[in-house]
């Protein structure tokens, strides 16, 4: 049953995943963590960190990771987890594969068509909202600690968040370097 749901979920994400890896992350987060409960918000955040540090597109990386983790979390054995990761990755790719071939054959010039342009005038701003929501949904006790029960972790986390935000937005630091530095800080401080 979980295999059928994995197929449907990732096929939908592949079909409607406009706007690149981050907007797909927002879909995976809602579908996989909030609606299906296949993994926790903390596990999801770790997954994002691991997908960003490793080569390959974020969409593929997260589908592979979620497919494996969801099936294992549901209590299935190792081989089923591997099957789950292959299925999730395949389902994510399938719709865009079909779509690309159709476009390649029939309508490569569709980009400037007024209908397509009007659809994108709505899609583009919505994708910005999707990514904003992904960031907001990650502001949980799982990721930051709480100011009352774990103030040490909370204030350090807030500091690391600010450091990363400024480092990336203002100084354009390499994200992998930032992740490594924050990992080091976590190792020393927690």
């Amino acid at each position: 049953m979980i295999f059928l749901l994995l197929f449907i979920t990732f096929f939908q994400i592949g079909l409607l995943g406009f706007g690149g890896g981050y907007s797909m992350l927002s879909m995976i987060q809602t579908e996989v963590v909030t609606l299906r409960g296949w993994m926790t918000m903390g596990e999801f955040t770790d997954m994002v960190a691991l997908s960003q540090m490793t080569p390959g597109p974020i969409g593929i990386n997260s589908a592979t990771y979620v497919g494996y983790t969801a099936v294992i979390n549901a209590g299935y054995p190792e081989w089923a987890g591997i099957l789950g990761s292959a299925l999730a990755t395949f389902s994510l790719i399938l719709p865009s594969f079909i779509l690309m071939i159709i476009i390649c054959r029939f309508l490569l010039r569709y980009k400037s068509h007024p209908i397509v342009e009007s659809i994108f005038s709505g899609l583009r701003p919505a994708v910005v909202g999707l990514i904003a929501a992904a960031a907001l949904l990650l502001c949980t006790e799982d990721n930051f600690g709480s100011p009352t029960s774990s103030p040490w972790q909370f204030w350090i986390s807030l500091g690391l968040f600010t450091f990363t935000f400024i480092g990336q937005q203002v100084y354009k630091m390499n994200p992998i370097l930032i992740i490594c530095m924050c990992g080091l800080a976590g190792w020393i401080l927690f």
Partner: peptide, 15 residues
Amino acid sequence: SIFRGIRPAVVALIA
């Protein structure tokens, strides 16, 4: 503990 340090960074990288 390493990942407790990385998690806030990931949130910022998405923001």
